[in-house]
Nucleic acid binder design. Structure first.
Length: 431
RNA sequence: UCCUCGGUAGCUCAAUUGGCAGAGCAAGCGGCUGUUAACCGCUGGGUUGCAGGUUCAAGUCCUGCCCGGGGAGCCA
Protein backbone atom coordinates (compact mmCIF):
# COMPACT_ATOMS: atom_id res chain seq x y z
CA UNK A 1 0.00 0.00 0.00
CA UNK A 2 1.44 3.36 -1.06
CA UNK A 3 0.57 6.92 -0.13
CA UNK A 4 0.85 9.02 -3.26
CA UNK A 5 -0.20 12.61 -3.72
CA UNK A 6 -3.48 13.39 -5.42
CA UNK A 7 -1.63 15.28 -8.16
CA UNK A 8 0.18 12.07 -9.07
CA UNK A 9 -2.78 9.74 -8.65
CA UNK A 10 -2.89 8.90 -12.38
CA UNK A 11 0.13 6.62 -11.92
CA UNK A 12 -1.80 4.46 -9.45
CA UNK A 13 -4.87 3.44 -11.43
CA UNK A 14 -6.28 0.05 -10.39
CA UNK A 15 -4.10 0.01 -7.32
CA UNK A 16 -4.96 0.23 -3.65
CA UNK A 17 -3.71 3.46 -2.07
CA UNK A 18 -4.02 5.44 1.15
CA UNK A 19 -4.43 9.19 1.00
CA UNK A 20 -4.48 11.75 3.76
CA UNK A 21 -6.05 15.14 3.49
CA UNK A 22 -9.08 17.26 4.26
CA UNK A 23 -12.75 16.93 3.33
CA UNK A 24 -13.48 19.64 0.78
CA UNK A 25 -17.08 18.69 0.22
CA UNK A 26 -19.39 15.76 0.82
CA UNK A 27 -22.70 14.80 -0.73
CA UNK A 28 -24.71 11.68 -1.42
CA UNK A 29 -27.78 9.63 -0.84
CA UNK A 30 -28.87 6.68 1.28
CA UNK A 31 -26.76 4.20 -0.65
CA UNK A 32 -23.73 6.09 -1.92
CA UNK A 33 -21.67 9.08 -0.82
CA UNK A 34 -19.20 11.26 -2.66
CA UNK A 35 -16.45 12.89 -0.69
CA UNK A 36 -14.12 15.41 -2.30
CA UNK A 37 -10.71 15.07 -0.67
CA UNK A 38 -7.93 17.63 -1.00
CA UNK A 39 -4.34 17.11 0.09
CA UNK A 40 -2.72 20.36 -1.01
CA UNK A 41 -1.64 18.95 -4.37
CA UNK A 42 -5.10 18.41 -5.81
CA UNK A 43 -8.56 17.02 -5.24
CA UNK A 44 -10.08 13.63 -5.83
CA UNK A 45 -13.58 12.26 -5.49
CA UNK A 46 -13.86 9.37 -3.07
CA UNK A 47 -16.90 7.11 -3.41
CA UNK A 48 -18.32 5.16 -0.51
CA UNK A 49 -21.11 2.64 -1.00
CA UNK A 50 -23.38 1.38 1.76
CA UNK A 51 -22.95 -2.17 0.49
CA UNK A 52 -19.14 -1.96 0.65
CA UNK A 53 -18.79 -0.18 3.98
CA UNK A 54 -21.69 -1.51 6.01
CA UNK A 55 -24.26 0.48 7.97
CA UNK A 56 -21.97 1.76 10.70
CA UNK A 57 -19.03 2.84 8.55
CA UNK A 58 -21.36 4.37 6.00
CA UNK A 59 -23.07 6.45 8.68
CA UNK A 60 -19.66 7.57 9.93
CA UNK A 61 -18.73 8.57 6.40
CA UNK A 62 -21.89 10.61 6.05
CA UNK A 63 -21.09 12.35 9.33
CA UNK A 64 -17.73 13.71 8.13
CA UNK A 65 -17.84 17.49 8.04
CA UNK A 66 -16.17 20.04 5.80
CA UNK A 67 -12.38 20.39 6.38
CA UNK A 68 -12.12 17.43 8.76
CA UNK A 69 -8.75 15.75 8.27
CA UNK A 70 -9.03 12.13 7.23
CA UNK A 71 -7.13 9.13 6.01
CA UNK A 72 -8.81 7.21 3.19
CA UNK A 73 -7.94 3.90 1.56
CA UNK A 74 -9.25 2.37 -1.60
CA UNK A 75 -8.74 1.48 -5.21
CA UNK A 76 -8.06 4.18 -7.81
CA UNK A 77 -9.98 4.05 -11.07
CA UNK A 78 -10.52 6.29 -14.03
CA UNK A 79 -14.00 7.75 -14.09
CA UNK A 80 -15.23 10.28 -16.61
CA UNK A 81 -18.00 11.50 -14.29
CA UNK A 82 -15.57 12.40 -11.51
CA UNK A 83 -13.96 15.84 -11.38
CA UNK A 84 -10.37 15.37 -12.47
CA UNK A 85 -11.06 12.08 -14.23
CA UNK A 86 -10.10 9.77 -11.34
CA UNK A 87 -11.89 8.55 -8.28
CA UNK A 88 -11.13 6.41 -5.30
CA UNK A 89 -13.47 3.57 -4.35
CA UNK A 90 -13.37 3.64 -0.56
CA UNK A 91 -12.57 0.44 1.28
CA UNK A 92 -11.81 2.16 4.57
CA UNK A 93 -11.26 5.57 6.11
CA UNK A 94 -10.40 7.15 9.45
CA UNK A 95 -11.18 10.51 10.97
CA UNK A 96 -7.93 12.19 12.07
CA UNK A 97 -9.19 15.58 13.23
CA UNK A 98 -12.79 16.73 13.26
CA UNK A 99 -13.82 20.16 11.97
CA UNK A 100 -16.94 21.72 13.41
CA UNK A 101 -18.79 24.58 11.74
CA UNK A 102 -16.04 25.45 9.27
CA UNK A 103 -16.76 29.10 8.57
CA UNK A 104 -15.94 29.29 4.86
CA UNK A 105 -18.74 27.39 3.18
CA UNK A 106 -18.57 26.60 -0.55
CA UNK A 107 -20.67 29.67 -1.34
CA UNK A 108 -20.01 33.33 -1.92
CA UNK A 109 -18.36 35.45 0.72
CA UNK A 110 -17.36 39.09 0.93
CA UNK A 111 -13.85 40.36 1.53
CA UNK A 112 -14.75 41.68 4.96
CA UNK A 113 -15.54 38.12 5.99
CA UNK A 114 -12.68 36.39 4.21
CA UNK A 115 -9.72 38.61 5.08
CA UNK A 116 -9.83 37.98 8.85
CA UNK A 117 -10.00 34.27 7.97
CA UNK A 118 -7.08 34.34 5.55
CA UNK A 119 -5.47 31.39 7.37
CA UNK A 120 -8.44 29.26 6.31
CA UNK A 121 -9.19 31.05 3.04
CA UNK A 122 -5.83 29.78 1.70
CA UNK A 123 -7.44 26.32 1.41
CA UNK A 124 -9.93 27.51 -1.19
CA UNK A 125 -9.40 26.54 -4.82
CA UNK A 126 -8.82 30.00 -6.24
CA UNK A 127 -6.52 31.15 -3.47
CA UNK A 128 -4.59 27.90 -3.75
CA UNK A 129 -4.26 28.43 -7.51
CA UNK A 130 -3.12 32.06 -7.24
CA UNK A 131 -0.44 31.28 -4.68
CA UNK A 132 0.72 28.30 -6.72
CA UNK A 133 1.22 30.65 -9.67
CA UNK A 134 3.03 33.09 -7.39
CA UNK A 135 5.53 30.40 -6.42
CA UNK A 136 6.16 29.66 -10.09
CA UNK A 137 6.58 33.35 -10.90
CA UNK A 138 9.20 33.70 -8.17
CA UNK A 139 11.05 30.54 -9.22
CA UNK A 140 11.00 31.66 -12.87
CA UNK A 141 12.46 35.05 -11.96
CA UNK A 142 15.37 33.45 -10.11
CA UNK A 143 15.94 30.98 -12.92
CA UNK A 144 15.92 33.62 -15.64
CA UNK A 145 18.17 36.11 -13.88
CA UNK A 146 20.71 33.50 -12.83
CA UNK A 147 20.79 32.09 -16.34
CA UNK A 148 21.51 35.65 -17.53
CA UNK A 149 24.50 35.83 -15.20
CA UNK A 150 22.97 37.82 -12.33
CA UNK A 151 24.14 37.16 -8.79
CA UNK A 152 21.53 37.16 -6.04
CA UNK A 153 22.73 39.77 -3.50
CA UNK A 154 20.09 40.85 -1.02
CA UNK A 155 19.65 44.35 0.37
CA UNK A 156 18.98 45.09 4.06
CA UNK A 157 15.47 45.49 5.48
CA UNK A 158 16.52 47.82 8.32
CA UNK A 159 17.81 51.05 6.89
CA UNK A 160 19.34 54.03 8.66
CA UNK A 161 17.82 57.52 8.76
CA UNK A 162 15.31 58.97 6.41
CA UNK A 163 16.25 58.48 2.80
CA UNK A 164 13.41 60.04 0.85
CA UNK A 165 11.45 61.61 3.68
CA UNK A 166 9.88 59.74 6.58
CA UNK A 167 6.21 60.09 5.72
CA UNK A 168 5.96 56.79 3.87
CA UNK A 169 8.45 54.86 5.97
CA UNK A 170 7.73 52.55 8.87
CA UNK A 171 9.83 53.64 11.81
CA UNK A 172 11.24 51.10 14.24
CA UNK A 173 13.20 51.44 17.42
CA UNK A 174 16.78 50.25 16.90
CA UNK A 175 18.78 50.05 20.14
CA UNK A 176 17.82 53.54 21.15
CA UNK A 177 18.06 54.92 17.64
CA UNK A 178 15.50 55.20 14.89
CA UNK A 179 15.63 52.90 11.90
CA UNK A 180 13.25 52.39 9.02
CA UNK A 181 11.97 49.43 7.06
CA UNK A 182 13.29 49.41 3.52
CA UNK A 183 11.20 50.84 0.71
CA UNK A 184 13.58 49.57 -1.94
CA UNK A 185 16.92 47.83 -2.28
CA UNK A 186 17.84 50.18 -5.09
CA UNK A 187 20.72 52.12 -3.53
CA UNK A 188 22.35 49.01 -2.06
CA UNK A 189 22.00 47.28 -5.40
CA UNK A 190 24.17 49.94 -6.98
CA UNK A 191 26.94 49.18 -4.49
CA UNK A 192 26.53 45.47 -5.20
CA UNK A 193 26.64 46.06 -8.95
CA UNK A 194 30.04 47.74 -8.54
CA UNK A 195 31.23 44.64 -6.71
CA UNK A 196 29.63 41.89 -8.79
CA UNK A 197 28.56 43.38 -12.12
CA UNK A 198 25.07 41.99 -12.58
CA UNK A 199 23.08 41.56 -9.38
CA UNK A 200 19.54 41.36 -8.11
CA UNK A 201 17.89 41.54 -4.75
CA UNK A 202 14.61 39.87 -3.91
CA UNK A 203 12.61 40.70 -0.85
CA UNK A 204 9.88 42.64 0.87
CA UNK A 205 9.46 46.41 0.67
CA UNK A 206 7.46 48.52 3.07
CA UNK A 207 5.39 51.60 2.43
CA UNK A 208 3.50 53.39 5.17
CA UNK A 209 1.29 55.12 2.61
CA UNK A 210 -2.31 55.42 3.70
CA UNK A 211 -3.50 54.06 0.40
CA UNK A 212 -6.30 51.56 0.24
CA UNK A 213 -6.67 50.57 -3.35
CA UNK A 214 -6.59 47.19 -5.02
CA UNK A 215 -3.03 47.95 -6.22
CA UNK A 216 -1.45 48.68 -2.83
CA UNK A 217 -0.09 46.74 0.12
CA UNK A 218 1.95 48.10 3.00
CA UNK A 219 4.27 45.11 2.63
CA UNK A 220 4.98 43.89 -0.89
CA UNK A 221 7.71 41.92 -2.62
CA UNK A 222 9.86 42.98 -5.49
CA UNK A 223 12.80 41.78 -7.51
CA UNK A 224 15.33 44.46 -8.36
CA UNK A 225 18.03 43.66 -10.93
CA UNK A 226 20.89 46.11 -11.42
CA UNK A 227 23.58 45.97 -14.13
CA UNK A 228 26.98 47.65 -14.30
CA UNK A 229 27.96 49.21 -17.62
CA UNK A 230 24.41 49.10 -18.86
CA UNK A 231 22.11 51.79 -20.19
CA UNK A 232 18.37 52.39 -20.47
CA UNK A 233 18.20 50.21 -23.59
CA UNK A 234 19.70 47.26 -21.69
CA UNK A 235 17.13 47.71 -18.94
CA UNK A 236 14.24 47.76 -21.38
CA UNK A 237 15.43 44.57 -23.07
CA UNK A 238 16.05 42.83 -19.75
CA UNK A 239 12.58 43.72 -18.46
CA UNK A 240 10.74 42.47 -21.53
CA UNK A 241 12.75 39.27 -21.75
CA UNK A 242 12.12 38.59 -18.07
CA UNK A 243 8.38 39.15 -18.39
CA UNK A 244 8.19 37.03 -21.54
CA UNK A 245 10.00 34.20 -19.76
CA UNK A 246 7.80 34.41 -16.66
CA UNK A 247 4.56 34.50 -18.64
CA UNK A 248 5.65 31.54 -20.76
CA UNK A 249 6.68 29.53 -17.72
CA UNK A 250 3.39 30.20 -15.94
CA UNK A 251 1.48 29.13 -19.06
CA UNK A 252 3.62 26.02 -19.40
CA UNK A 253 3.11 24.94 -15.79
CA UNK A 254 -0.39 26.18 -15.00
CA UNK A 255 -2.43 26.46 -18.18
CA UNK A 256 -5.14 24.29 -16.62
CA UNK A 257 -5.31 26.27 -13.39
CA UNK A 258 -5.42 29.57 -15.25
CA UNK A 259 -8.11 28.61 -17.74
CA UNK A 260 -10.10 26.43 -15.32
CA UNK A 261 -9.99 27.51 -11.71
CA UNK A 262 -9.00 31.13 -12.34
CA UNK A 263 -11.05 31.64 -15.52
CA UNK A 264 -8.17 33.57 -17.08
CA UNK A 265 -8.15 34.25 -20.83
CA UNK A 266 -4.85 32.51 -21.62
CA UNK A 267 -4.75 34.02 -25.12
CA UNK A 268 -3.94 37.32 -23.42
CA UNK A 269 -0.87 35.71 -21.85
CA UNK A 270 0.21 34.00 -25.03
CA UNK A 271 0.52 37.48 -26.57
CA UNK A 272 3.22 38.41 -24.05
CA UNK A 273 6.23 38.12 -26.37
CA UNK A 274 9.18 40.48 -26.69
CA UNK A 275 9.75 43.05 -27.98
CA UNK A 276 7.07 45.09 -26.25
CA UNK A 277 5.84 48.34 -27.77
CA UNK A 278 7.71 51.45 -26.63
CA UNK A 279 6.05 54.75 -25.97
CA UNK A 280 8.10 57.90 -25.33
CA UNK A 281 6.62 60.14 -22.64
CA UNK A 282 6.00 62.85 -25.27
CA UNK A 283 4.06 60.33 -27.35
CA UNK A 284 2.11 59.21 -24.28
CA UNK A 285 1.03 62.78 -23.67
CA UNK A 286 -0.10 63.05 -27.30
CA UNK A 287 -1.97 59.74 -27.12
CA UNK A 288 -3.73 60.77 -23.91
CA UNK A 289 -4.81 64.09 -25.39
CA UNK A 290 -5.98 62.28 -28.51
CA UNK A 291 -8.06 60.03 -26.25
CA UNK A 292 -9.68 63.16 -24.87
CA UNK A 293 -7.80 63.36 -21.60
CA UNK A 294 -6.62 66.65 -20.20
CA UNK A 295 -2.99 65.90 -19.47
CA UNK A 296 -0.20 68.43 -18.87
CA UNK A 297 3.40 67.64 -19.80
CA UNK A 298 5.63 67.15 -16.79
CA UNK A 299 3.67 65.05 -14.37
CA UNK A 300 3.39 61.36 -13.68
CA UNK A 301 0.48 59.45 -15.15
CA UNK A 302 -2.57 58.81 -13.00
CA UNK A 303 -4.10 55.36 -12.71
CA UNK A 304 -6.75 56.25 -15.25
CA UNK A 305 -4.14 57.61 -17.69
CA UNK A 306 -2.20 54.35 -17.42
CA UNK A 307 -5.34 52.35 -18.12
CA UNK A 308 -6.23 54.40 -21.20
CA UNK A 309 -2.74 53.93 -22.58
CA UNK A 310 -2.36 50.22 -21.86
CA UNK A 311 -5.75 49.47 -23.42
CA UNK A 312 -4.25 50.58 -26.73
CA UNK A 313 -1.90 47.57 -26.79
CA UNK A 314 -2.22 43.79 -26.51
CA UNK A 315 0.88 43.28 -24.40
CA UNK A 316 2.89 45.11 -21.76
CA UNK A 317 4.34 48.42 -22.92
CA UNK A 318 7.42 50.42 -22.09
CA UNK A 319 6.76 54.00 -21.14
CA UNK A 320 10.13 55.75 -21.23
CA UNK A 321 11.80 59.16 -20.84
CA UNK A 322 9.68 60.56 -18.03
CA UNK A 323 10.35 64.18 -17.09
CA UNK A 324 13.20 64.48 -14.60
CA UNK A 325 10.84 66.02 -12.04
CA UNK A 326 8.52 63.02 -12.12
CA UNK A 327 11.22 60.56 -11.11
CA UNK A 328 13.59 59.81 -8.24
CA UNK A 329 16.65 61.97 -7.60
CA UNK A 330 19.13 59.32 -8.78
CA UNK A 331 17.70 58.96 -12.31
CA UNK A 332 20.11 59.98 -15.05
CA UNK A 333 19.02 62.84 -17.32
CA UNK A 334 18.96 62.26 -21.06
CA UNK A 335 22.03 64.00 -22.59
CA UNK A 336 20.00 64.65 -25.77
CA UNK A 337 17.08 66.17 -23.86
CA UNK A 338 17.85 67.17 -20.24
CA UNK A 339 14.14 67.72 -19.49
CA UNK A 340 13.72 63.93 -19.60
CA UNK A 341 15.25 61.14 -17.56
CA UNK A 342 16.56 57.80 -18.82
CA UNK A 343 13.66 56.06 -17.09
CA UNK A 344 11.16 53.38 -17.98
CA UNK A 345 7.96 52.01 -16.52
CA UNK A 346 6.34 48.86 -17.79
CA UNK A 347 2.56 49.01 -17.79
CA UNK A 348 0.75 45.68 -17.68
CA UNK A 349 -2.00 45.19 -20.26
CA UNK A 350 -5.74 45.31 -19.61
CA UNK A 351 -5.41 48.49 -17.57
CA UNK A 352 -3.60 46.80 -14.71
CA UNK A 353 -1.07 49.56 -14.23
CA UNK A 354 2.61 49.79 -13.45
CA UNK A 355 4.48 46.57 -12.70
CA UNK A 356 8.03 47.75 -13.44
CA UNK A 357 9.80 51.00 -12.63
CA UNK A 358 13.43 51.64 -13.43
CA UNK A 359 16.03 53.13 -15.72
CA UNK A 360 19.59 54.38 -15.86
CA UNK A 361 21.07 55.90 -12.70
CA UNK A 362 23.25 58.95 -12.80
CA UNK A 363 26.99 58.26 -12.66
CA UNK A 364 27.86 61.95 -12.37
CA UNK A 365 28.94 63.00 -8.88
CA UNK A 366 28.26 66.70 -9.35
CA UNK A 367 24.79 66.07 -10.78
CA UNK A 368 23.93 63.69 -7.92
CA UNK A 369 25.08 66.22 -5.33
CA UNK A 370 22.97 68.88 -6.99
CA UNK A 371 19.97 66.54 -7.01
CA UNK A 372 20.29 65.83 -3.27
CA UNK A 373 20.36 69.55 -2.69
CA UNK A 374 17.39 70.15 -4.98
CA UNK A 375 15.31 67.47 -3.27
CA UNK A 376 16.20 68.83 0.16
CA UNK A 377 17.84 65.58 1.23
CA UNK A 378 20.46 65.35 3.99
CA UNK A 379 23.99 64.83 2.78
CA UNK A 380 25.47 62.65 5.50
CA UNK A 381 23.41 59.47 5.03
CA UNK A 382 24.24 59.53 1.32
CA UNK A 383 28.00 59.76 1.63
CA UNK A 384 28.42 56.04 1.02
CA UNK A 385 26.16 56.32 -2.03
CA UNK A 386 28.22 59.23 -3.34
CA UNK A 387 31.33 57.07 -2.87
CA UNK A 388 30.05 54.89 -5.72
CA UNK A 389 30.61 57.92 -7.98
CA UNK A 390 33.94 58.83 -6.35
CA UNK A 391 35.62 55.47 -6.70
CA UNK A 392 35.34 54.36 -10.30
CA UNK A 393 31.95 55.64 -11.32
CA UNK A 394 30.23 53.59 -13.98
CA UNK A 395 27.05 53.75 -16.05
CA UNK A 396 24.49 51.36 -14.60
CA UNK A 397 20.82 50.68 -14.78
CA UNK A 398 18.12 48.41 -13.48
CA UNK A 399 14.53 48.20 -12.35
CA UNK A 400 12.11 46.92 -9.74
CA UNK A 401 9.37 44.43 -10.60
CA UNK A 402 6.41 44.18 -8.21
CA UNK A 403 5.63 40.53 -7.52
CA UNK A 404 2.02 40.88 -6.37
CA UNK A 405 1.08 43.20 -9.21
CA UNK A 406 2.64 40.79 -11.68
CA UNK A 407 0.79 37.83 -10.17
CA UNK A 408 -2.48 39.80 -10.17
CA UNK A 409 -2.05 40.53 -13.86
CA UNK A 410 -1.08 36.98 -14.81
CA UNK A 411 -3.85 35.33 -12.80
CA UNK A 412 -6.46 37.95 -13.62
CA UNK A 413 -7.07 38.86 -9.98
CA UNK A 414 -8.70 42.19 -9.45
CA UNK A 415 -7.01 42.89 -6.13
CA UNK A 416 -3.36 42.25 -5.25
CA UNK A 417 -4.24 41.29 -1.67
CA UNK A 418 -5.08 37.80 -3.02
CA UNK A 419 -1.61 37.53 -4.54
CA UNK A 420 0.39 37.29 -1.31
CA UNK A 421 -0.20 34.63 1.36
CA UNK A 422 -0.85 37.02 4.24
CA UNK A 423 -1.52 40.52 2.92
CA UNK A 424 -0.58 43.55 5.00
CA UNK A 425 -2.98 46.38 4.40
CA UNK A 426 -3.53 49.71 6.03
CA UNK A 427 -6.48 48.28 7.97
CA UNK A 428 -5.50 44.68 8.22
CA UNK A 429 -2.49 43.08 9.87
CA UNK A 430 -4.12 39.92 11.21
CA UNK A 431 -3.77 36.98 10.77
C1' U B 1 -6.07 63.44 4.15
C1' C B 2 -10.14 63.90 0.49
C1' C B 3 -14.27 61.79 -2.55
C1' U B 4 -17.82 57.87 -2.90
C1' C B 5 -20.69 53.45 -1.58
C1' G B 6 -22.13 50.37 2.25
C1' G B 7 -23.26 47.92 7.50
C1' U B 8 -30.37 43.53 8.13
C1' A B 9 -29.97 35.56 10.41
C1' G B 10 -23.45 31.95 10.56
C1' C B 11 -22.81 33.59 4.89
C1' U B 12 -24.80 36.29 0.38
C1' C B 13 -28.66 39.52 -0.04
C1' A B 14 -34.18 41.41 -0.25
C1' A B 15 -37.83 44.40 2.38
C1' U B 16 -42.86 49.10 -2.32
C1' U B 17 -44.93 55.80 -0.12
C1' G B 18 -42.58 55.23 7.02
C1' G B 19 -47.17 50.14 8.16
C1' C B 20 -46.59 42.21 10.67
C1' A B 21 -38.23 41.63 9.16
C1' G B 22 -37.96 37.70 4.46
C1' A B 23 -35.30 34.35 0.72
C1' G B 24 -31.26 31.22 -0.90
C1' C B 25 -27.18 28.83 1.18
C1' A B 26 -25.14 27.02 5.90
C1' A B 27 -26.82 24.30 10.62
C1' G B 28 -30.36 20.27 12.75
C1' C B 29 -33.96 16.30 11.39
C1' G B 30 -36.06 13.24 7.45
C1' G B 31 -35.99 11.33 2.10
C1' C B 32 -33.25 9.74 -2.24
C1' U B 33 -28.24 4.01 -5.57
C1' G B 34 -23.62 8.28 -9.53
C1' U B 35 -23.52 13.16 -7.11
C1' U B 36 -20.86 17.68 -9.79
C1' A B 37 -21.37 24.74 -5.23
C1' A B 38 -26.23 17.59 -5.73
C1' C B 39 -31.51 17.60 -5.10
C1' C B 40 -36.57 17.35 -2.27
C1' G B 41 -39.38 18.16 2.53
C1' C B 42 -39.51 20.01 7.59
C1' U B 43 -37.30 22.78 11.88
C1' G B 44 -34.47 26.23 14.63
C1' G B 45 -32.07 30.88 13.83
C1' G B 46 -32.66 38.69 14.37
C1' U B 47 -30.01 44.24 19.91
C1' U B 48 -31.51 45.71 11.34
C1' G B 49 -23.28 48.75 13.30
C1' C B 50 -23.74 52.27 17.99
C1' A B 51 -26.12 56.59 20.48
C1' G B 52 -29.86 60.04 20.27
C1' G B 53 -34.13 62.48 17.71
C1' U B 54 -38.94 63.00 14.66
C1' U B 55 -43.56 59.95 14.45
C1' C B 56 -49.53 56.58 16.43
C1' A B 57 -45.66 53.62 13.99
C1' A B 58 -38.50 53.75 11.91
C1' G B 59 -34.48 48.57 8.63
C1' U B 60 -36.61 52.95 6.02
C1' C B 61 -36.55 59.96 7.78
C1' C B 62 -32.93 63.53 10.74
C1' U B 63 -28.15 64.40 13.79
C1' G B 64 -23.62 62.51 15.67
C1' C B 65 -20.23 58.52 16.08
C1' C B 66 -17.92 53.61 14.90
C1' C B 67 -16.49 49.97 11.26
C1' G B 68 -15.69 48.39 6.28
C1' G B 69 -15.54 48.40 0.55
C1' G B 70 -13.92 51.21 -3.78
C1' G B 71 -11.30 55.38 -5.70
C1' A B 72 -7.87 59.92 -5.62
C1' G B 73 -3.04 61.33 -4.15
C1' C B 74 1.64 58.26 -3.85
C1' C B 75 3.77 54.22 -5.83
C1' A B 76 5.65 48.20 -7.17
Amino acid sequence: MTQPSIAGIGAHVDREVTLRGWVYNSRGSRQVRFLILRDGTGMIQCVGGLADLGEERFAALAALTQESSVSVSGRVRTEARAPGGYELILSDFALLGASEDYPITPKEHGIEFLLPRRHLWLRSRKQHAVLTVRATVIAAIHEFLQREGFLHVDAPIFTPSAVEGTTTLFEVEYFGDKAYLSQSGQLYNEAAAAAFGKVYCFGPSFRAEKSKTRRHLTEFWQVEPEMAFADLEDTIVLAENLLEFVAARVLERHRGLLAGVLERDVAKLEAVTAPFPRVHYDEAVARLREAGRDFAWGGDLGAEDEAVLSEQFDRPLHLHHFPVEAKAFYMAPDPQDPRCSLSVDVLAPEGRGEIVGGGQRTDDLAFLEAQLEKHGLPREPYEWYLDLRRYGTFPHSGFGLGIERTVAWLTGRRHIRECIPFPRLMRSISP
